[in-house]
């Protein structure tokens, strides 16, 4: 039987991908970020023995366009191309999918959970998915785990509510637990933390909020589920509303899941957060 063996909340700041591509992980400015992920990688590969990861991310008008922008989209392919986000294609191998598990998740969500997702047979993936992979499951010629991409509209309002994202996580858990093959699955919620990139409020950071969020995602996610998009944007910046995707990860874990790792670093315009969890023994 398949199991959820790990939950991860992590930022997906695009400059991290550029640092990886240019090998600057050990510079004084970046070392505090990358060092925090070293024990996480070992934990995921050696202890939790992750085979596949469901990545909850948003497409930044890259493979999808605002002309047609799915609220929830799930990949159902054996491979996902690396997208050109407007700056060239990063030198990465294509992401490997798990077609059978993806197909099961799609069937379960539609037939059992009333999550009528958009199903994508083709999807090019971008920094929203790739940066968390760089940090947690780095490629060395190929990626070490298979990926089920779950794309969420967090850009063009109306976007799904925080509570709906949490419920999607619970539905994903039931989907995984009803899959009859032995697969160790991690769920990764990506984005944030506080940041605003547009308007005269550019550069808005709120580290107090970010640390509150890290506390609550662990111990009281309902406190976040109750927030409106307006509240989240007012506190953490307009682009930080994407933090609702961390709730999908949390919804996939048991209420008493334990936090294993936690980190926070806010060097420039975005709070870069990390949390990992596993179900209580």
């Amino acid at each position: 039987m398949a199991m959820i063996v790990a939950g991860i909340g992590t930022s997906h700041v695009p400059s991290i991908g550029a640092v990886v591509d240019s090998g600057r992980q050990n510079t004084p400015e970046w070392k505090p970020l990358f060092d925090a992920y070293e024990p996480v990688r070992t934990w995921l590969s050696d202890e939790r023995k992750v085979d596949a990861v469901i990545v909850i991310y948003n497409d930044h008008a890259c493979d999808f366009s605002f002309s047609k922008y799915p609220t929830f989209a799930v990949g159902a392919a054996s491979e996902y191309a690396i997208a050109d986000e407007g700056f060239g294609v990063r030198p990465l191998p294509p992401v490997k999918g798990d077609l059978d598990l993806s197909a099961h998740i799609c069937r379960h969500l539609v037939y059992e959970e009333e999550f009528d997702i958009t199903i994508c047979k083709e999807m090019a993936v971008e920094h929203g998915l790739l940066v968390p992979m760089d940090l947690c499951f780095p490629q060395q010629g190929e990626w070490p785990v298979k990926v089920i991409p779950v794309q969420v509209n967090v850009l063009q309002h109306p976007i799904p509510t925080a509570l709906r994202c949490f419920k999607l996580g619970a539905a994903l858990r039931r989907a995984v637990e009803s899959y009859d093959r032995d697969v160790n699955v991690a769920v990764m919620g990506t984005g944030g933390m506080s940041h605003q990139l547009h308007g005269e409020r550019f550069g808005h950071l709120n580290s107090d909020f970010d640390n509150w969020f890290l506390d609550k995602i662990e111990s009281d996610p309902q406190a976040i589920c109750g927030m409106t998009h307006f509240d989240l944007m007012e506190q953490a910046g307009a682009e930080a509303v994407e933090l609702i995707m961390w709730l999908t990860m949390r919804g996939a874990m048991t209420p008493d899941a334990q936090r294993i790792h936690r980190n926070y670093y806010a060097p420039m315009t975005t709070g870069m957060g990390l949390i990992t969890m596993q179900d209580a023994a």
Binding site: Q156, P158, R201
Partner: peptide, 12 residues
């Protein structure tokens, strides 16, 4: 929200 232009369907 001050100095913020939320990207809703009107803006889109």
């Amino acid at each position: 929200i001050k100095d913020t232009y939320v990207f809703d369907l009107k803006m889109s």
